[in-house]
Simulated assay, not measured.
Amino acid sequence: MGVFTFEHENISVIPPARLFKALILEDIDLFTKAAPEFIKSIEVIEGDGGVGSIKKITFFDGNRVKCFKEKIEAIDKENFTNLSSITEGDVLNERLEKVTYGKKIIATPDGGSIVKNTSKYFTKGDAGVKEEGVKAGQQRIDGLFKLIEAYLLANPDAYN
C-alpha cells in the first residue's frame, strides 16, 4: 500500500469558531442549505454524529460522485481540527483503499480563517494517485467552500 499526501488551503473572512461549528459540528444542516444543488442528503447511519460515527453523503445526479460513506475519526473543538475517512463509495476506485481528510482552522490577524486541508490517499498494492484528479477534486472543494462562505455571510446569525 502507498500513501500519497496532498495539502490545500482555503482562506475565509469567517472567524475560526464559527467556521468550525458550521463546517464540522453542524455540517449536515449547513451543506444541504448552502449547496442544495450539489448535496442531496447527509445522514448519520451509525453513531451520534461525533467521533466514530458514519455519515452517508449523497449527491444529485450530474455530479461525478454519487455517494460515499465517511467515518469521523477525530474532532478537537478547542484546536478547531478534525479527521475523517472515506472507506466506501464511488470516490474510491480500483486503486484506492481509503482517503482521509484532515482540517485545521487557524485564525488570521484580521479575524478570518485559514482552513488547512490535508488529504491522504491510501492506495491498493503499488498503485499511484493521479495528481490531476486530486487537483480537480480540490477545485470542486474550493467551489463548495465558496458556496458555504457566501451562505454564512448572507446569514450572519447562523452557526454562532
Results as ranks from 00 to 15, higher is better:
F38R: 15
F38C: 06
K40M: 04
S41P: 04
S41E: 07
S41R: 01
E43D: 13
E43T: 09
I45K: 03
I45W: 09
E46M: 05
G47V: 07
G49H: 06
G49M: 13
G50H: 06
V51S: 09
S53R: 00
I54D: 10
I54A: 09
K55S: 04
K56T: 13
K56R: 11
T58E: 10
T58L: 06
T58G: 06
T58Y: 03
D61N: 07
G62W: 15
R64Y: 07
V65G: 00
V65E: 11
K66F: 05
F68C: 03
E70P: 01
E70D: 11
I75V: 14
I75K: 02
I75Y: 02
I75H: 01
D76C: 05
D76V: 03
D76S: 14
K77I: 12
E78T: 05
E78K: 13
N79C: 07
F80E: 01
F80C: 14
S84P: 05
S84R: 12
S84N: 05
I86K: 02
I86P: 00
T87V: 10
T87E: 13
D90R: 00
N93P: 10
E94D: 15
R95Q: 12
E97L: 08
K98C: 05
K98R: 15
G102H: 15
G102Y: 11
K104W: 08
K104S: 08
K104Y: 07
I105P: 00
I106P: 01
A107F: 13
A107T: 07
T108D: 11
P109Q: 15
G112C: 10
I114L: 07
I114M: 04
V115S: 02
V115M: 01
V115R: 01
K116R: 04
N117V: 12
T118N: 05
S119I: 10
Y121Q: 02
K124F: 15
K124L: 14
K124Y: 05
G125W: 14
A127P: 14
G128H: 12
V129P: 01
K130F: 09
E132D: 14
E132K: 08
E132C: 14
G133Q: 14
V134Y: 00
K135V: 12
K135R: 00
K135T: 03
A136C: 07
G137M: 03
G137K: 03
G137Q: 02
Q139D: 10
R140W: 12
D142A: 08
G143W: 00
G143A: 15
G143Q: 08
L144R: 01
L144F: 11
I148E: 02
I148C: 02
I148A: 02
E149S: 07
E149Y: 00
L153A: 11
L153Y: 06
N155L: 06
